[in-house]
Design a protein around this nucleic acid. Structure first.
Length: 357
DNA sequence: AATGCTCGCAACCGCGGGCAA
DNA sequence: ATTGCCCGCGGTTGCGAGCAT
C-alpha cells in the first residue's frame, strides 16, 4: 500500500512555469496569502498545477527579496562551516543567508562549491609534486580544472564582486601543508566531504566546540585583530544549553573591558570596533555584514535576529548574549567580544580578539 | 556548421514529521 | 493511541544553454 497521491497526476501540468502561471500565482498570494493550504490553492487560482509545485515555485522563485547566483566569499565560508557543523541541512543553512533558498544553496554546493574545494586541493597536490612529479594525467586534469574555474568564477568582464570567487584572491585560512597522495579525496558521502573540508580549516577547527572558526583579520601595524565565527552542532538547540560551550562562556560574561595597549585605547563594544575599523580600513569591512550584522554596518536596527551590540543595549533578548574573556584566547590575545546567537536552531558564536604584537 | 557532451539550474518526487480529529 | 492529511525537506531528474570536437 503506497501513499495516496496529493493530486490527480494525470490532470496537472508539469515542467517549467509560464510567465502567465507565475503572475497568476504571485498576484493571488500577494493578495490573499496561501490560505495555509497549498493543495487547494491551485484550484482557487485556476492553475492546473500540483499544490506542491505551486509552493515550490513561490518559495524558490516568486517570493520577494530573493537573490539568485552571485554567492559571495563570505557566503561560501558560511555554507562550508555550516556544512561541516550540521551537514546537508540546506534549509537551516539557507536560514543563515538572507535571500537565499535551500534549493539554491543545495545546487550551488553540488555544482560549484564542492568542485572549488576539490580544485584547490588538487592545485596544492600539484605544488607538492612540482619538484619531481610530472604526471601527465594530473597535469591534464589540472588544466581542465583551471580553465573551468576561470570561466566559472572570474569571467573577463567580471565585476569586483564576482572576482571574489577567485580562490587566489580569497583571504584563505592558514593551511596545513597537505601530504601528497595519489588519491583525490572521494566525495562519496557527507562524512568524507566534512573530513576533507576540515583539512582546510585544521588550524581553526576547534574540537571542543566541534565547530569552525571563520577567520578575518585586520592589522594596523600595531595590533592584529582577528574575528571568528563558530558554528556548532554541539549546541544546536536550547536543550543543550548546559554543554561546555555555554558553561565556560559564562565566565566574565556581559559587557566588554576597556583594554589598554601601546598608546591606544581599545573600544568597549564591537559597534565601536567596527566604527574604528571603518575609519582605518574601510576596504576590509566590505562583506563583513555576516559577522557584524547589517544593522551594525549600516548603523541601524533591521530586525530581531541580529542585534547591535553596545554595552547598554537590549542585547539580552532571547538568544543573544555578549561575553568576553573567552578561554580559547591565550595571554597573547585580548578578547574584544563574543556574541552567541541562535538562528533557527543553529547555534552561532562570533568573537573577536586582538593579538598583541 | 553539425553533432555530441557537460554543466547548471529549475522542478519533481518520495518520505518523515507534525498536527488535528 | 491511532489515523489521515498536509507541509517541508533533501535527493534526484530533466532540460536547455554553452562549449568542445
Amino acid at each position: 500500500m503506497g501513499r495516496a497521491p496529493c493530486c490527480d497526476k494525470s490532470n496537472v501540468k508539469k515542467g517549467p512555469w509560464s510567465p502567465e502561471e507565475d503572475s497568476k500565482l504571485k498576484f493571488y498570494i500577494e493578495k490573499h496569502g496561501t490560505g495555509s493550504n497549498w493543495l487547494t490553492l491551485p484550484q482557487k487560482i485556476g492553475l492546473k498545477r500540483c499544490g506542491k509545485s505551486c509552493r515550490l515555485r513561490w518559495l524558490n522563485y516568486l517570493r520577494p527579496n530573493l537573490r539568485h547566483g552571485g554567492f559571495s566569499e563570505e557566503e561560501d565560508n558560511i555554507i562550508c562551516s555550516l556544512y561541516i557543523s550540521i551537514g546537508s541541512r540546506w534549509s537551516v543553512i539557507a536560514a543563515q543567508l538572507p535571500g537565499r533558498t535551500d534549493n539554491d544553496i543545495k545546487n550551488y554546493w553540488n555544482t560549484r562549491l564542492k568542485k572549488k574545494l576539490l580544485w584547490k586541493h588538487r592545485k596544492e597536490q600539484q605544488q607538492a609534486l612540482s619538484n619531481g612529479g610530472n604526471n601527465r594525467a594530473v597535469k591534464k586534469e589540472s588544466n581542465r580544472e583551471s580553465r573551468s574555474d576561470s570561466l566559472s568564477f572570474v569571467p573577463e568582464n567580471s565585476t569586483h564582486h564576482e572576482q571574489l570567487y577567485n580562490w587566489q584572491q580569497m583571504p584563505m585560512l592558514p593551511l596545513q601543508p597537505l601530504p601528497y597522495t595519489n588519491q583525490s579525496p572521494s566525495f562519496n558521502n557527507e562524512d568524507s566531504i566534512k573530513k576533507f573540508l576540515r583539512r582546510f580549516y585544521d588550524d581553526n577547527y576547534h574540537p571542543t566546540l566541534d565547530g569552525l572558526l571563520n577567520h578575518h583579520e585586520f592589522s594596523n601595524g600595531i595590533y592584529k585583530e582577528q574575528v571568528h565565527m563558530v558554528s556548532s552542532s554541539a549546541c544546536i538547540s536550547n536543550s543543550n544549553i548546559n554543554n561546555n560551550e555555554v558553561q565556560y562562556s559564562q565566565t566574565g560574561q556581559y559587557g566588554f573591558d576597556l583594554v589598554q595597549g601601546q598608546g591606544s585605547t581599545f573600544t568597549s563594544s564591537i559597534e565601536e570596533v567596527v566604527s574604528t575599523n571603518t575609519n582605518n580600513y574601510p576596504q576590509r569591512l566590505d562583506g563583513l555584514e555576516f559577522f557584524y550584522g547589517e544593522d551594525i554596518i549600516n548603523n541601524k536596527i533591521m530586525g530581531s535576529s541580529s542585534t547591535s551590540c553596545s554595552q547598554s543595549s537590549n542585547w539580552g533578548e532571547t538568544n543573544t548574549q555578549i561575553y568576553h574573556h573567552h578561554p580559547l584566547v591565550s595571554s597573547n590575545y585580548q578578547v574584544q567580544g563574543l556574541i552567541q546567537e541562535t538562528h533557527n536552531n543553529v547555534f552561532l558564536q562570533k568573537f573577536s580578539y586582538r593579538e598583541m604584537q
